[in-house]
């Protein structure tokens, strides 16, 4: 079977997400948090903190990291890895901005992380 290697889907305008903020995209595999940094970079991560499942999309975004709203674990947006003394990671998903629109690689999101 041949899956398409990528399938970029337009999920919304960059300005739908506030700078240093996030919005959620619902997928069959759970929610994905799409973050926008102060300098307009965009990252997509599973919206579940590796610590106790907190919604990362509700955290405070600083630099290229987010602090989970439930217990304060800090997650790097680019690699999904916990920072500092904590350990743990969340899955990241390819995301990019083109002409003011946010594109997610939905092929992976639709068929899941296992592929």
């Amino acid at each position: 079977m041949i899956w398409p290697t990528s399938n970029w889907i337009d999920i919304g305008a960059l300005d739908d997400i506030p700078r240093r903020g996030a919005r959620v995209v619902r997928t069959a595999h759970g929610c994905v948090a799409v973050f926008r940094t102060q300098d307009d970079r965009v990252f997509a991560l599973d919206d579940r903190c590796p610590h106790k499942g907190g919604p990362l999309s509700e955290g405070i975004v600083h630099g290229d990291a987010v602090t989970c709203p439930l217990h304060g674990m800090v997650i790097g947006l680019a690699d999904g890895q916990a920072r500092g003394a904590d350990s743990g990671a969340v899955a990241t998903h390819p995301a990019r901005v083109e002409g003011g629109r946010i594109l997610l690689d939905a092929a992976r999101l639709i068929r899941g992380r296992a592929a």
Binding site: I9, I11, G12, D16, I17, R23, V24, V25, R26, T27, A28, H29, C31, V34, L104, A106, L109, I110, R111
Partner: peptide
Amino acid sequence: AGFAPLADLTREAA
């Protein structure tokens, strides 16, 4: 709008 999801891909998955 800000309280709702930005997009819903669950249907695409189906």
